[in-house]
Deep mutational scan, measured.
Amino acid sequence: KAKLLVLLYAFVATDADTICIGYHANNSTDTVDTILEKNVAVTHSVNLLEDSHNGKLCKLKGIAPLQLGKCNITGWLLGNPECDSLLPARSWSYIVETPNSENGACYPGDLIDYEELREQLSSVSSLERFEIFPKESSWPNHTFNGVTVSCSHRGKSSFYRNLLWLTKKGDSYPKLTNSYVNNKGKEVLVLWGVHHPSSSDEQQSLYSNGNAYVSVASSNYNRRFTPEIAARPKVRDQHGRMNYYWTLLEPGDTIIFEATGNLIAPWYAFALSRGFESGIITSNASMHECNTKCQTPQGAINSNLPFQNIHPVTIGECPKYVRSTKLRMVTGLRNIPSIQYRGLFGAIAGFIEGGWTGMIDGWYGYHHQNEQGSGYAADQKSTQNAINGITNKVNSVIEKMNTQFTAVGKEFNNLEKRMENLNKKVDDGFLDIWTYNAELLVLLENERTLDFHDLNVKNLYEKVKSQLKNNAKEIGNGCFEFYHKCDNECMESVRNGTYDYPKYSEESKLNR
C-alpha cells in the first residue's frame, strides 16, 4: 500500500503543469573576455578590431598615390635624371617610397634638414613645378651647363633637372645676384646647392675665386655659405661634395641669391598645395585598381571598426592602431551559463540550468507544459528593451572611439638618435595607453552587458513569482510547478501579467 502511494505521488508530481523562465541559446562559437572571465561563450557579439588588409596600394578616395619607385624624396625633388618619370607629377593622395629606393642625390652630399622637408611634404597633396630662374636668361655671365658622370643618364654625363651647376664663363666668375618674388599665391619650395671641391685647383678651375661665398636671403631665411675645400674619400667617382638646401617662400615674399662661386642654382621650384589627408609611407606593396579610405604600408583597410592592429602608420580615415589581438564586445547572452554566478555589478545569474535553442524569437521568455502540450514563448517587451539598450551602447562606444585619422611616422637624422629613441618611447607609451583603454573598455562593457542580461532574466522570474504567489511552488531551476490546472489561456495570463490569483487560489489551497 505504501509503495502504491509513492508511485501515485510521483505520477501526480510529474503530471503537474509547469512554467519556466529562460533565455535564448544557439550554436554560436563566439567568445568574449570580461573583467572576471576569459573566453566566455556568448550567443552574439561584435568585433571592434580590424585585423585584415588587402595587401595592395590603392587610390585614396579615388585619387591615385605618387609612387616614387626607384627614387626617394631627395632624388625626386632635386631632379635626379633617373627620376625623370616623376617630373610630370602634379597631385596625389599620398606618397609612396620603397624601403630600398636607390636614386637620391646622384652627386654625393646631403639634403640639409631632410627630415623636416619630409614632414612638410606629408601635408602636401599637389604642386606646380615651374621655372623659377629661366636657364637661358638668368645667368648671362656664367656657364650653366655643368654636368657630371655621377648623374649620368643613358650613358652620358648629366645633372639634376631642377638645378643648374653654374661655373665660370671664360676665365671669370663675376659676382651674381638674382631674385624671385613669389607671385603664386601659395608657398613655394625653393631648392639650391653649394659645391665643396676637393682641392684649391678644382676650386680655381671651376670658379676662378679662391674665397667664394654663397648667400641666400628671404624674410624668414638668411644664410651665408662658404665652400669647404678638403680631400675626401671618393664616392660615386667624386672627391667633391654638394650640400643641398631648401626653404619655403611665403606668398609675396622675395628670395635673393648672391654668389661669387660654388652656387648650384635653382632652375625649377614648386608651388605647394596642402592636403590634410596626405602623407608619406614606405612600402613594398604594389599598386592595383582599387579604392580605399584608409591606406597602410601593408595594404588598404576598408573598415568602419574603431581599432586596427595592422600597422601604426596610416593615411586617410583609419581606425586607431592598438596592439590588441582581440577586441570583441558582447551583444547577446551567455551561451554556457554559470550556476549560481554573481556578476561584478550585482546581477544574479545561473538559476537557469541552460539556455534554450528552441526559443528563437527572443532573448528571454517562457517554456510551459500542461495537458494541452508544451512550447516556448519569447517575452518580446523585455527582449526589445534589451536590444535597444545594447545597440545604443555599442553604437555609442564605437562612435566615441571611432575617431579616424592619419598617423604618419616621424623623421630623425643620424645625429638625432637620442631624440628618436625618446620619441619611440613616448609613442610606445601612448600606444600602451590606447591599447589598455580599449581593452579595459571592452572588458568592463562585456561584464556589464552579461550582468544586464542576467538581471533581465531574474526580473522576469520575479515578475512571475509575484503573480503566482503560493498558487505554485519554485522547483529550483527557474521553473514553477502549479498547484492547479493551468491551461493555455492561464499560461498566457502569466506571461502577459494578467494572471488571476484569486481564481485559482482555492484549487491551489486544496492541492498544497
Rank of each mutant, 00 (worst) to 15 (best):
F159C: 08
L68W: 09
L5Q: 14
S179C: 05
N182R: 02
L78Q: 02
D30T: 13
L86H: 10
N183C: 00
N162G: 02
I95N: 02
Y23R: 02
D84K: 00
V6R: 14
I280Q: 02
K234P: 12
A25Q: 07
S150M: 04
H53T: 15
G185Y: 01
E128G: 02
T282L: 15
F144N: 12
G69T: 09
L121H: 06
L68N: 06
V147N: 11
P65N: 06
K38G: 15
N209C: 00
F270K: 13
I95Q: 05
K169H: 12
P251R: 09
A269F: 00
H195S: 02
D237C: 01
V214R: 02
Y268R: 06
D30G: 07
N178I: 09
S150A: 15
G185H: 09
I280G: 04
K168C: 10
I281C: 07
T167G: 13
V6N: 09
S215V: 12
K184I: 12
Y221V: 11
C151R: 07
L36P: 03
G69E: 12
N209Y: 10
S200D: 13
T148L: 00
I63A: 07
I21L: 15
W92S: 03
G279L: 08
G62R: 09
T226L: 12
P134I: 02
A269Q: 04
K169D: 12
L189P: 03
D110V: 05
K175Y: 12
N72V: 01
F225H: 14
L66C: 08
A13K: 09
N262R: 01
W139S: 00
V96Y: 05
T34L: 04
S93Q: 10
S126Y: 11
F225T: 10
G69S: 10
F225C: 13
L176P: 00
I95R: 03
A265Q: 10
D51R: 01
A217I: 11
Y114N: 09
Y245A: 10
R224W: 08
S137I: 13
S205Q: 06
P88A: 11
N54T: 12
E202Q: 07
G210D: 14
C106E: 02
W165R: 13
C151W: 11
L4H: 12
K156S: 13
A89V: 10
S123I: 13
N162V: 02
Q238I: 08
I256N: 08
V188K: 01
G252L: 12
R129C: 08
G279W: 07
N182S: 01
V6Q: 08
A265M: 09
S158G: 15
G104A: 13
S150Q: 03
V216T: 08
N141M: 03
S218Y: 09
H44L: 09
S91W: 04
K168W: 01
K70L: 09
E82V: 10
A230K: 04
K184C: 04
K234E: 05
N145F: 13
S215E: 00
W165K: 03
A89I: 14
A230W: 14
R90K: 07
G193H: 00
S126V: 12
L176N: 01
T14L: 01
D237Y: 01
N262V: 01
S45F: 13
V124K: 00
D15M: 14
N262A: 12
T29F: 02
G155F: 07
Y180W: 15
P108I: 01
N141S: 09
K56I: 02
S215L: 10
T260E: 12
A89K: 13
N145P: 08
S199C: 09
R154Y: 15
F276Y: 11
L163H: 00
D33W: 07
L117H: 02
N222F: 15
W139F: 15
V12M: 05
L111S: 03
T18N: 14
S179V: 14
L4V: 05
G261Q: 01
T226W: 14
K56W: 12
A25V: 15
N209I: 15
R129F: 05
Y245D: 00
V12K: 05
L163S: 08
N209S: 13
Q120F: 07
I132D: 06
E250Y: 11
C71L: 04
P266K: 06
L121V: 11
Q120C: 06
S172W: 13
T34W: 02
I73M: 13
L49V: 07
E136F: 06
E50A: 15
V124L: 12
R154Q: 13
T31C: 07
N27M: 04
E277V: 06
L117R: 03
E202F: 02
G252E: 15
G185N: 07
L263S: 01
Y9L: 09
E131F: 04
P88Q: 03
Q120V: 06
S52T: 08
L163K: 03
L249C: 02
G155A: 14
K59V: 00
K186E: 09
S208H: 10
N26T: 07
G75E: 10
R274L: 05
S205L: 12
D171E: 15
G275Y: 06
S125R: 13
S205K: 04
D171F: 01
V46W: 08
W139E: 04
M242K: 04
N80M: 02
R161D: 04
I19T: 00
T254I: 07
L249P: 01
F130R: 02
N262H: 03
D110P: 14
L49N: 01
P197C: 11
Q238Y: 00
F270S: 03
Y160G: 01
A230T: 15
N80T: 11
F270Q: 03
L166S: 00
A10L: 15
P227R: 02
V6M: 14
A269P: 02
H24T: 13
V214E: 06
K186I: 14
L166P: 05
L48S: 07
A217E: 00
E116Y: 02
H44R: 02
W76N: 06
P81L: 07
N211D: 09
S218R: 03
P134C: 02
T226R: 09
E97H: 03
L49T: 03
P140L: 11
V181T: 15
L176Y: 09
L117A: 06
T167M: 10
L78V: 11
I95G: 02
N262M: 03
S273W: 15
P140R: 13
A64C: 01
Y9W: 05
W246S: 02
V194R: 00
A2D: 10
K38H: 10
T74D: 00
I264G: 00
T98L: 11
N220Q: 03
L78S: 02
N222H: 13
S125C: 01
V32M: 04
N141V: 07
C20T: 04
V42A: 14
L60W: 02
K1Q: 12
L189T: 04
K59M: 08
D201E: 15
S179D: 08
W246G: 05
G193M: 02
V6P: 00
N100C: 07
S137Q: 08
H24W: 04
T148G: 00
H153E: 10
L176C: 05
Y180F: 15
R241Q: 09
F225P: 00
A271N: 00
T98M: 02
P65E: 05
L68M: 10
L248K: 07
M242H: 02
T226G: 01
F257M: 02
R232F: 09
L127K: 07
K61I: 00
N183W: 02
S205V: 14
L78W: 08
R241K: 09
A10H: 05
N211I: 11
V40W: 12
L164F: 15
Y213M: 14
V6A: 10
S91R: 07
K56Y: 03
Y107R: 05
E131M: 08
S45N: 12
D171Y: 00
F11T: 01
T29N: 15
Y160P: 04
I256W: 15
